[in-house]
Design a protein around this nucleic acid. Structure first.
Lengths: 108, 108
DNA sequence: TCTATATTTCCATAAATATAGAAATATTGT
DNA sequence: ACAATATTTCTATATTTATGGAAATATAGA
């Protein structure tokens, strides 16, 4: 993970619609959600939805899989975790205990 | 933390210059960095830097403190951790073990 | 192949964001 | 008050990103 990748990933969820989409997919878990289903739940028009889904999948945060007539989308947990790890990794920068609670446990 | 706040925070670091600035401040730790110092290290013109510093501090990710003739900036670890916690909090969505490694430890 | 349904591309437009020079505004030491 | 230094605002411009209707492209069942 480098800055460029991190910024791309962050940009992909730093937007209302896409943040909501990602959360929905996170909650849907391994069964995923069909594109139409997402658009319905969030009241997003087809073309707009498609645009955002492409942004997310292009960044690598979600994955698409054709299933029958539908295209199912899934949250990519590993990539998300990679991003979080990268962020938390530098959160203490040597000096301990700058992160009071939880987030920094990753690189203990 | 709600979606709106999360998106604002994410937007504030989802940008090359600001991501670099934030990292620099994270590494600087409790001693912080003067604005001019940041601009020098990252080769960012005054006005551009000021714009980005305002974005970050407005979002709440960094804090400013006047010290002598300089304005020192500091990473706001707590806010950052709050964001990470919010992200990881929903990363498993009930079903366990969807987050193989580290990031999800926060809400165990 | 025809039809119905699902999703994506095309397109034009709108809105938000980033950039940096120049001028204005602090702040402090003398 | 003056001079020196630091930072911010103002301004215009450039660039990127978001939006959604309409048309095009899948996909699969009959």
């Amino acid at each position: 993970m480098d800055n460029k990748t991190a910024v791309t990933l962050l940009s992909s969820i730093a937007q209302d619609a896409r943040f909501s989409i990602f959360r929905l997919l996170v909650q849907a878990g391994s069964s995923g959600l069909a594109a139409g289903n997402i658009g319905e739940k969030l009241s997003i028009p087809n073309s707009t939805l498609s645009f955002h889904l492409k942004e997310l999948s292009h960044a690598g945060l979600i994955t698409a899989r054709q299933e029958s007539r539908f295209v199912f989308y899934f949250a990519n947990y590993e990539v998300m975790n990679g991003l979080l790890a990268y962020l938390t990794e530098n959160c203490c920068a040597g000096q301990q205990a700058c992160c009071p609670d939880l987030a920094c446990s990753s690189h203990v």
